[in-house]
Design a binder for these strands. Structure first.
Lengths: 248, 248
DNA sequence: ATGCCTCTATGATCACGATCAAGGAGGTGA
DNA sequence: TCACCTCCTTGATCGTGATCATAGAGGCAT
C-alpha cells in the first residue's frame, strides 16, 4: 500500500514536472521560446492542460466561441472548414509546438473545426490572459506577432502552391515540408509516419485522392520515396526538393 | 500676396488636418479604430506620412528589411512574390484602410514586393514603435491581433477558392469581394473601376488571362455585369453571389 | 479468427482551363 | 498626330487531373 501511494505521488510529480514549460522538450520551438526563466513561470501559470484527444475527436468545432489558442504538445491535428452543403476543406495540419486557433481572434469564433489525427495532447492558453500577459512581457508579445506573421507567410506559400504548381510539385512540396518540420522537431527527416489519410492530403493540396495515390506510386517508381501505407521513407530528398520548386 | 500667403497657410493646415488620424475618413476602418481620442493622438504621433506613390512604383521590394507596416490611405496596391526564375505570383490586393506588410514581422524582411496600381498614399507605421505603443494601449494591441487574425481568415478563404472553385466561381467571388470592400468604404458596391489589369486578376486567381477575358465576356452576356475596359457595373449582385458560392 | 468497413490502388474516359495564335483597342510619349 | 507598345479579346487545340468504376488491402470490433 505504502508503495502504491509513493508511486502515485511520483507519478503525479513526474506528470506535473513533464507538464511545465520549463521542462518541455518543445520549449525551444514553442510560444515561450524567447522568455527568461522567471517570465516563463508566469506564462506557465496561465496555461491549462487538457486530457489527451483520441483520434477523430475535435479540439473545437467550427463556429464555437473563441476563448483560447492551443499549443500542440504531441500528436497532430487537421483544421477543416465546412462551407455550404457538406463540402469540406482541409486548410491546415498542425504538429507539436505549433499554435492552433489564431484565426479565431478576429470574429471571436473559430472558422474551422480542428480534429485530432491520432492521440494528441495540447496546452490550452486562454487568449485574454495571454493578451494581458503579453502587455508585461515584450518578448512574449513579439513571439505572438511572429507566430501570426509566420502563418501569414506560410499561407502565401500555400496559395502559390495551389495556383501555380502541378500535382507532382504539390506532393513533392508537401513531403519536403513535412520532412523539414520533422527535422526541426528532432525527428528523422527521412523516415516518418503520415498521420493523415490520402483523402486529407488530397483535400489539402487541392487534388483528388486518386491523383495522390497515382503520384505516390510514380514517386516510388522513380526511387524518390518508399511508401507503405502511411509509413514514408524519403530516399532522395534533393530530387524531391528540386521537383517541388521546378517551373511547370 | 497676402492672399497667397493665407492660402498657402490654409493649404498646409488643411493638409496637416487631413493627415491626422482624428480627421481621417478611414478612422472607423483603420488600425486606430478602437482608440479613444487621447490614445489616438499618441498613435497619430508615431505614424509617418509618405509622398504619394505613382502607378507602378513600389512601396518596398521583396527581401528588403522589415521596419514598418503601412496603412493604405488612398489608391490601391498589389503584393507580388517572385520565386525562382521570373515566375511572379500576385498574393494580395490592398485597398484603403488595409494594413500592408504584416507578413514581414517574422523574418524581418518583406516576403513580397508591394506595388502601387495607381497613385497611392500610405501612412507608414514603424513597427517597433507600434509594438511599444501596443504595450500601453490594449485596444491598439487587440486591433493589431484582430487585423492579423482577419488576414489569416481571408487567406483560408483564398485557399479554398484556389483549390475547390471553378474559374467562373473564382471570378464571381472576386467581384463579390471587391463589391463588398467598396461598400464598406462608403463607395458604390455596384459601380467601380478596377485598378488592376486582367493579367493581375488572372495571376491572383490562378487563371490564365484568356480565361479571365472569356469569363468576363460570358458574365456580360448573362447580364450579371457590364464591363468596359476597367469600368465595372454590377447588374445582378445576387446572382453573382450565388454563382460564387455554388457547388461545382 | 471472421466479417465489415474504410482506405488505397489502378484503369478508362472526359472536361476544364492552359497554351498557342492572331487581331483589335486603348493609352502614352515623341 | 502618329506610331508604338501594352492590354484585352476571341478562336483552335491540347494536356492535366477530375471523375467514374472496380478491386484489393488493412484496420477494428466482435
Amino acid at each position: 500500500m505504502a508503495v502504491h501511494a509513493a508511486n502515485a505521488i511520483d507519478k503525479r510529480r513526474s506528470l506535473l514536472h513533464e507538464t511545465r514549460c520549463q521542462n518541455c522538450s518543445l520549449s525551444s520551438l514553442c510560444l515561450p521560446l524567447a522568455l527568461e526563466l522567471e517570465d516563463m513561470e508566469q506564462f506557465d501559470a496561465i496555461i491549462r492542460r487538457r486530457a489527451p484527444l483520441k483520434k477523430g475527436e475535435s479540439l473545437f468545432r467550427q463556429g464555437s466561441a473563441f476563448n483560447s489558442v492551443y499549443a500542440v504538445r504531441s500528436g497532430s491535428l487537421k483544421q477543416v472548414t465546412t462551407e455550404g452543403s457538406g463540402d469540406d476543406q482541409v486548410t491546415n495540419f498542425y504538429l507539436p509546438s505549433e499554435l492552433v486557433g489564431l484565426d479565431g481572434i478576429d470574429e471571436q469564433a473559430y472558422p474551422g473545426s480542428v480534429i485530432a489525427l491520432e492521440t494528441t495532447t495540447v496546452c490550452e492558453i486562454p487568449f485574454d490572459r495571454l493578451d494581458t500577459l503579453s502587455e508585461a512581457l515584450p518578448e512574449l508579445r513579439g513571439q505572438l506577432y511572429r507566430s501570426m506573421s509566420k502563418e501569414l507567410r506560410d499561407d502565401r506559400r500555400m496559395m502559390r502552391l495551389l495556383s501555380r504548381k502541378t500535382a507532382d510539385q504539390r506532393l513533392a512540396s508537401f513531403f519536403s515540408s513535412l520532412s523539414d518540420r520533422f527535422r526541426r522537431r528532432g525527428y528523422s527527416p527521412y523516415s516518418f509516419r503520415l498521420s493523415m489519410s490520402r483523402a486529407d492530403i488530397g483535400n489539402y493540396l487541392g487534388l483528388a485522392v486518386e491523383t495522390v495515390s497515382r503520384i505516390l506510386g510514380r514517386f516510388q517508381q522513380q526511387g524518390l520515396v518508399e511508401v507503405s501505407g502511411r509509413e514514408v521513407n524519403i530516399l532522395n530528398l534533393e530530387a524531391l526538393l528540386a521537383q517541388a520548386q521546378e517551373e511547370p
